[in-house]
Amino acid sequence: MTLLLKAWGYYARVSKRWPVIETLVPFLPLIAIWWTVAELQIFPPAFFPGPAEVAQSFWTLLYKGILTAYLYDSVVRLAVGAAAGIALGIPLAILIGLNWRAHLALWPILLFFQAIGDIAWLPILLIWFGFGLTTMTFVIVYTVLFPVVLNTVLGVRSVPIELQRAAASLGASRWRILTEVILPGAMPNIITGLRNGLGYGWRALIAAEIIVGTSGIGFMMFDARRAGSVVEIVVGMIVLGVLWYIVDNWILAPLERATGERWGLVTK
């Protein structure tokens, strides 16, 4: 018992110093279970490959350059979509957040278009733009836009009026109040919106790549499915999971914490 406690204490100490250990170690038992289940052939190997085959396939795809090329395509699409979504969304949100007429006129429309959802746009986009980059970019921008706008509006409207008055009485112009008070005050919400938007946008990208598909990780997975190659599907899923985990866990979540918690602001 004491030995177990000591081991746990050691693990707690080490993982406190290197958080990456805390992230990676829990996957070891999972991979062990996966390996055992695959070795015992509880499911047919054509449906349920083991870690060794997946690693092998990962290496082959990487070596041939397919994986890197597709990964690059997917990441660029997501980045472009996110950047455009933010560039459109934040000014729109500031307008809606600060102007009650704009809010009255646009809020219901926003809610309705958000409800339609990105993927439902695919068929008509295919008619308009064909199977291509425009269709995919549209879907991602659309997906990222709404969470960013809705959250930013919440953020802008939650900046206390006292802060704006304080800035004004210190001599800030309207523009300076916007850049120095309202935007920083809304920042935690903007980041939350971005995080949600990218979470949805990333899923929309996979769907678009499967349906529109000419390249990208989603396309690779569905191409593998057509060929009946379950190994490559699993490689695709793991790559997606790891990629998104890195983006979300090591970029977006710390960013959210850095603004929201550091400043002691409530993001709701």
Binding site: R203, I210, V234, G236, L240, G241, W244
Partner: peptide
């Protein structure tokens, strides 16, 4: 749990 919840949904369609 975080890994699997970020993967949940659409990414499972092929498999």
């Amino acid at each position: 749990m975080r890994f699997f919840s970020v993967l949940a949904g659409i990414a499972w369609i092929p498999i």
